[in-house]
Amino acid sequence: MRRLPAAFVPFAAVVALGCGGAGGRPDASSMAVMPARPQCGALSLACVGQKLDAPIALGSTLELDVRYQIAGSSGPPTTLETADPSVLVLDGSHLRAVGAGLSAVLFLGPDKTVIDFLHLWVEPATELRILRYSSAGTLLGRVQSSVKLLVHDELLVSVEPFAKGQPLIGNFKLETTVAGNSVAIVPDSVSGFHRVVARSPGPSQVKLAALGLSTEWTIEVQP
């Protein structure tokens, strides 16, 4: 493949994920816009998506936050266009993953010329995992299917889709059902996170459902 000369490389772009839904990888501040890397754009022009490190879960949505670093100019007005609408559909600034496979996403300038493009994969999720984070948003690890808490304990968790062990990205509606009164599960102010609060001694059974999958979580709160 021929690489373009450096003189043709006047800018770089960054794409970050917006996590507006209740399920999916949380949008912690430490995971916001990442610095550009010069080799990750398809045209060797732009770095688009260090956070686009996995396929998108089928049935989820993804918001692309396009930012540029152009010598001598601010970022130009940009519109998006998908190559294969049977895989990815554009819904405002959101991409909807409607079919398994791959589609290019083009970043078009004001004159409809292509500034750059990237390829996104869509994969059906096979599993939902509950992951625990610190209050600073650092991933601590996978939550076990059965846990014990003390009254007033709090866990910060997210429910994230995986496909055959590989994490997927995307936002989706998460349905939470709690049987029992010992815990409360409330969405955190940072989208994607949920706070699990132990309120009183006793057992609770939590069911989490999204993307056609579900997972159960047994919590026992001790006095």
Binding site: A83, T113, V114
Partner: peptide, 21 residues
């Protein structure tokens, strides 16, 4: 197949082709 021009100064001989279906 769709065709777009490349939005880059001096890139008058370069295009982007998109395989739609």
């Amino acid at each position: 197949l769709r065709e777009h021009r490349l939005g880059r100064h001096g890139a008058k001989r370069e295009f982007v082709l998109v395989a739609v279906r």
